[in-house]
């Protein structure tokens, strides 16, 4: 794959609430390169969740250009968006969102169902992935038989089983105690370096954000700071910046 994993140019998103349009995102321009480790921080209401939904292909911008895996999402049907998510993005949620009454193995295999793989291959791949997050001994456990940290590791395995370009994690440590949260973050960092998957963390925890190589700060629907020009560990260094011209009024401040 060439080009950045995700590219947003002047992306805005407005919601209509009771006839009043509310701007959640007002012109965001940023690029997520392959293999990057980015934290998006900001207070609640700053638009970081909206941004994550857009970057993950769960939503489409009201205006601006958004490319996921090199593909412009404008005009894509819900089915095409679903396919794009399945192929490009892995999600990790604060509340884990595992299917109850379903084994860790089948939870991890779930995204492969929508890829049309047979049960045998799905399970084989899921088992490998669970092994990689250190849960090779818990294949048949159900979510309610596992600790929070274990559940989040299952969720991470599920996010990675499709071999996505980007792993989007929304407050992945929000429901975990400090030690468990730290372990989960370490796991994400290890996967980032070892597997080369770009990791985008959305958090309001400054300490969590500080562990990422790049921090993007949001406020009132715009990016107010972007810590550094991206420096991906894994190759594809050749075109790191050009997309990131300041957008309209509320572009980014520093590089």
């Amino acid at each position: 794959m060439t080009g950045p994993a995700i590219e947003a140019i002047g992306v805005a998103r407005t919601y209509a609430m009771d006839g009043v349009s509310v701007a959640a995102l007002r012109g965001v321009t940023l690029t997520i390169e392959h293999g990057e480790h980015v934290a998006i921080v900001g207070p609640s209401g700053s638009g970081k969740s909206t941004l994550m939904h857009l970057l993950g292909g769960l939503d489409q911008p009201t205006s601006g250009e958004l490319r996921i895996g090199g593909r412009d999402v404008a005009g894509l049907s819900p089915a095409e968006m679903a396919h794009l998510r399945n192929a490009t993005i892995g999600f990790v949620f604060q509340a884990f969102h595992l299917l109850a009454r379903t084994s860790a193995l089948d939870n991890v295999a779930l995204p492969l169902v929508y890829r049309g793989l047979g049960a045998k291959e799905r399970r084989a791949r899921a088992a490998v992935m669970l092994e990689r997050v250190g849960l090779g001994h818990r294949l048949d456990h159900r979510p309610n038989q596992m600790s929070g940290g274990e559940q989040q590791r299952v969720a991470i395995a599920r996010a990675l089983v499709t071999e996505p370009a980007v792993l989007l994690a929304d407050e992945p440590t929000g429901n975990l105690d400090q030690a468990t949260g730290a372990a989960v973050l370490e796991l994400l960092e290890r996967l980032n370096t070892a597997e080369g998957v770009a990791v985008v963390l959305v958090t309001h925890d400054r300490e969590v954000a500080a562990r990422a190589r790049r921090q993007i700060t949001m406020r009132d629907g715009v990016v107010v700071s972007d810590s550094a020009a991206p420096g991906p560990v894994i190759p594809q260094q050749r075109n790191s910046g050009p997309g990131e011209q300041p957008g309209d009024d509320g572009g980014e401040a520093a590089r």
Partner: peptide, 16 residues
């Protein structure tokens, strides 16, 4: 609803 949202996030099409 949450399960539906999750399945969609993981790549389920409306038809699925």
């Amino acid at each position: 609803t949450r399960e539906i949202g999750l399945r969609k996030a993981l790549g389920a099409r409306p038809r699925d």
